[in-house]
């Protein structure tokens, strides 16, 4: 495969920035959760790209041919863990968003500020 350089890293950082943009400038709570999900996807992509080695094969063969290099297995294990953790946090965030909506009758973040000052 041809070398495509740092493009995956750039895409990962773009996803993080998009997520931060949603968190900073979007007023809807669900949209902000989507922002958190985007940051998380970006970080996951970053981790997997870290472990990639050109011409490598997947690190899942027990009897891999020794002449071929494997891509690093650790970042992949990390990413798996991170994906599962991400599901838990997203679910919790969304359930709190639903609760907030039930109590406040709105999802507008600028109206959900009883705790201030």
């Amino acid at each position: 495969m041809m070398h495509i350089g740092n493009l995956p890293f750039i895409v990962a950082m773009l996803l993080v920035i998009l997520g931060l943009y949603a968190l900073l400038f979007k007023r809807n709570l669900i949209k902000m959760v989507i922002g958190v999900s985007l940051v998380e996807t970006g970080v996951n992509l970053f981790l997997v790209t870290l472990g990639y080695r050109a011409e490598g094969i997947a690190p899942i063969y027990t009897h891999a041919p020794t002449a071929v290099s494997q891509v690093l297995p650790t970042p992949q294990a990390l990413t798996l863990t991170s994906i599962v953790i991400g599901l838990a946090t997203t679910a919790l965030l969304l359930s709190f968003a639903v609760l907030v909506y039930r109590h406040y009758g709105t999802l507008d973040v600028t109206k959900i500020k009883e705790l201030r000052g």
Binding site: P8, N44, V48, I60, Q76, T79, G86, L87
Partner: peptide, 14 residues
């Protein structure tokens, strides 16, 4: 990127 197991997890869970 040669991470098929992560791909499955991302498609299923993510």
């Amino acid at each position: 990127l040669q991470a098929p197991d992560v791909a499955i997890a991302e498609a299923g869970i993510g």
